[in-house]
Amino acid sequence: MSVSVCTLAFGREKHLCNLVRGLSLGSSFPDELVIAVLQEQAYDLPSAPFPVRQIAMGNAGLSLAEARNRAAGEATGDLLVFLDVDCIPGPDCVADYVRAAQSHDGVMMGEVAYLPSGATANGIDFRSFESVGVRHSERAGPPEGPSRECSDYRCFWSLNFALSAREFQIVGGFDERFRGYGGEDTDFGRTVASLGLPIWWLRGAKAFHQYHPHHMPPVHHLDSVLANAHVFMEKWGEPTMQHWLRAFVLMGLLERTPHGWRKLRDPSDADLALTRQQADQPYASSAIVLEQLEAAALS
């Protein structure tokens, strides 16, 4: 079974270099790494024991759906492993996916551990990563056995997943009507479920998420989240990203109308401060911010 690892990149050169190094230290190498490059210049990457192909998309802006589709379309492997650019694949990530693909149809999602700031300062050290990496509190933990099927399409997580190239084509890839950030992964999961394909949590196939400042809920992507929420509603007749939208309403950024959500204003410095991931946090938490907003609304 041939394996293509697919990622997309805009900036984040250090993160991408660590992704390449992580794959190079794996117990099993992919047959190729395919990178959809969302900027004008190619990356200067470390050497690797497998082919690395950079697919130039120009400065087309942050279109996650289009970039993932482009990487998958250029890939030659039987199995497609998708990793976000800020992920360092663990030593058995590729091997675990290959093993699981021999007995699982559909989408497989590996484990993710979030690293604190400074964890990669001394290079790739998987033993250290295991000791300091933490599970995201808003995501399911690894199953007790080798795998567990997820019965809710909303559990799909595009950070670290794999499926066969054939099934990716059956699904139709990511819907490119979703532009920018937000909703395209939930839509992909909804399409997978509508086709009767299973979604699996795996024990193993682990990736380590590299620290970077972030906002949750993603107020810095307010406009694309709002636009994509309407695309999802028009397509499926039901809302998505409801926890983010609820937070934005409580922050006074949006209002709910009979026809969906309407933007009231741009995020302020206070909104950015409220949602900003702090240096002592390995990840940003929408749940914590929403809890604070709900409490304030009741006071």
Rank of each mutant, 00 (worst) to 15 (best):
V52N: 03
M1Y: 05
F248Q: 03
G61F: 05
P116E: 08
V94Q: 03
G237S: 08
L80E: 02
K206N: 07
L159G: 15
R265Y: 09
L16D: 01
L290V: 14
Q54M: 10
G172A: 14
A140G: 14
W244D: 14
S224L: 09
H15C: 08
S128R: 13
L202Q: 00
S24R: 09
M57S: 00
D266K: 14
E238F: 04
R276K: 11
T7Y: 03
G58C: 11
G11Q: 04
A36C: 07
E13A: 15
P217S: 07
G237R: 03
K263H: 12
V219A: 06
H243G: 03
V192S: 02
R177C: 05
A297G: 09
P51Y: 10
A36M: 09
T186M: 11
N69L: 02
A71H: 03
S158I: 11
M57H: 00
F178Y: 15
I199P: 01
G11N: 04
F129T: 00
F161M: 07
I288E: 14
S128L: 15
T257Y: 10
Q242I: 10
C150K: 08
R70S: 08
Q242L: 13
I170T: 14
S194Y: 11
V94S: 04
A296H: 15
G133E: 02
S2H: 07
M1W: 04
L79D: 00
A287Y: 06
L197A: 14
L83P: 00
A162M: 05
K14T: 10
I55W: 09
V192D: 02
E66P: 00
F178W: 04
H209K: 10
A75N: 06
G183P: 03
R12W: 05
E32A: 06
G77D: 06
F232S: 01
T240I: 14
A9N: 05
G237V: 07
D92L: 13
E238M: 07
L115K: 00
G58E: 08
P239C: 11
C87T: 12
H212G: 08
G106W: 04
A42Q: 09
Y43N: 02
G173Y: 09
V231R: 01
V37E: 04
D223K: 03
K14M: 06
S4N: 07
F232N: 01
P46E: 14
V98S: 02
M241R: 03
V249A: 09
H214N: 11
S286N: 12
P213A: 10
E167V: 10
G141H: 11
H212C: 06
D175G: 02
W200A: 01
